[in-house]
Design a protein around this nucleic acid. Structure first.
Lengths: 112, 112
DNA sequence: TTGGTATACATAGAACTTCTACATATAATT
DNA sequence: AATTATATGTAGAAGTTCTATGTATACCAA
């Protein structure tokens, strides 16, 4: 399990990227997918996930549709067009940030 | 300039790594070094840097010594033994986190 | 049938980091 | 004389994620 602080700033991008890759997902599914992809090192809590999803919806980046699974409602999230554009930008930015971080961790100028 | 949130959780590790690499540095020097290493994309503000440095000192990871430069005091920061151990751990953790992030951004399981 | 675990969504309030904005002061440049 | 760069620092705001809790269904084992 990573230090909690590391995830800050990346959670939204992670969620968007997973939705982009998988079309539509529901909340619990996202937590499980991240758990698997991170080899159990990133465990997203409900208190992190749902506020993040609600904010994405408020911002118009994702939309929801509900399906009945047996007796209960499952809420699927998927990207809007605006969300698709935003995902691309955020993923690019994160890739660049990772590159910059690696420069710093080796203390080499970016130009090298 | 990156979205501000991305830096969260990595600033302390960046500071420690720079101190590890350079022996001793003063605050302003750290901001300038990060500016160069990040190609102007990470601009650490005083309000971020000094609280972070003070916390590192409170936690015993860095120590300070002051030098007179002309009429003014310059405060140099350097790693304690505890700080050196901590730096190694944090840098390793950050490298692993970056690897995990890259897996997620390509949506591949860690084991692959 | 009781208890525990997994699934599934959600909120309130705490904790933490970084930011904006401000304050202070010297040195160098225009 | 005014501005910019150097240099350290604090107060309070903003933002994200976490802990803890609540609700409910489904499944399995004892």
């Amino acid at each position: 399990m990573y230090s909690k602080e590391l995830l800050k700033g990346t959670l939204t991008t992670i969620i968007l990227k997973l939705l982009s890759h998988n079309g539509k997902m529901y909340g619990y599914e996202i937590t499980q997918r991240v758990k698997i992809l991170s080899d159990d090192k990133i465990l997203i809590k409900e208190g992190s996930l749902y506020p993040a999803l609600h904010k994405l919806k408020d911002d118009g980046l994702v939309k929801t549709d509900e399906e009945m699974i047996g007796n209960r409602v499952r809420k699927y999230y998927s990207l809007t067009d605006k969300g698709k554009l935003s995902t691309e930008k955020k993923v690019n930015e994160l890739h660049q940030f990772i590159g910059t971080l690696q420069n710093i961790l080796t203390d080499k100028p970016s130009l090298a």
